[in-house]
Nucleic acid binder design. Structure first.
Lengths: 125, 125
DNA sequence: GATAGTAGGTACCTAGAGGAAAGTACTGGC
DNA sequence: GCCAGTACTTTCCTCTAGGTACCTACTATC
């Protein structure tokens, strides 16, 4: 995934997107960073629309990437806690930047409306 | 009412990722922001592995979202120029944050190697 | 008349992501 | 005896993003 000879990755920020903001990882990392430790079902319920299978896959991936720490307690019934790692915490300024830009989503919605309601015939061959 | 357990409100930055950093849009926006105006084939060649079909789709999407401006010159052969919009330029601090975090990708690679070479049997049920 | 060059559009096909549902192992509680 | 609860795993199925290949219109050049 991290391969600087890949032409796509001629763009130096694409690998960061791949690792940190790939599908489903954004809400997981954001939740763990914002609200701290979570058990598996707590994460599942808070994110809401994610299935257990995909949540497991993404948590393994994030654990492997060193962004999330998994702790297993061999009790009955079993208990597992997920928390963000130090490396994961270093993403905080990034989340901040994203949150600061998010008000611009209104302008995006506006642009879409303009694009959809105006005939672009005069601009296109 | 602000309910952090509401799946919709669960993660406020996910919509930004969807609009700005969805698949293939990252290298396009980054290239236009970094190197200015590009013709269609110039973009195609610089990004390298993208197909014309997908490039067209993503450029339409970015134009619709108001992040990219398309200018058509009715010459022969036809000429089209794509450049980043003011709204797109407002992403610059975000690109900056991402670029600043990118050295941490080394730690990710390290974590992966550690995860893959160490037996996690003692941590897993 | 064949070819190149531009900026796409269109039809078809496949790989992979993700959803649904059931299974697993363990024990406490009714 | 059986259900509940946890943290998954596994199997099967569907849907869509993206790739391949070919098509458009227009002209200049060989």
């Amino acid at each position: 995934m991290i391969d600087s000879t890949d032409p796509v990755q001629a763009c130096p920020i694409a690998p960061v997107i791949d690792v940190v903001f790939s599908r489903w990882t954004t809400p997981i990392l954001w939740t763990l960073n914002e609200f701290g430790k979570h058990r598996f079902v707590e994460l599942e319920r808070r994110i809401g629309v994610i299935t257990a299978k995909v949540l497991t896959q993404r948590l393994r991936q994030l654990e492997r990437d060193g962004l999330v720490v998994r702790t297993y307690y061999p009790e009955v019934p079993p208990r597992v806690e997920y928390e963000i790692s130090d490396l994961g915490r270093s993403l905080a300024p990034l989340f901040q930047s994203l949150a600061e830009w998010s008000p611009n989503l209104d302008k995006v919605a506006e642009a879409r409306e303009h694009y959809d309601t105006h005939e672009p015939a005069h601009r296109r061959p």
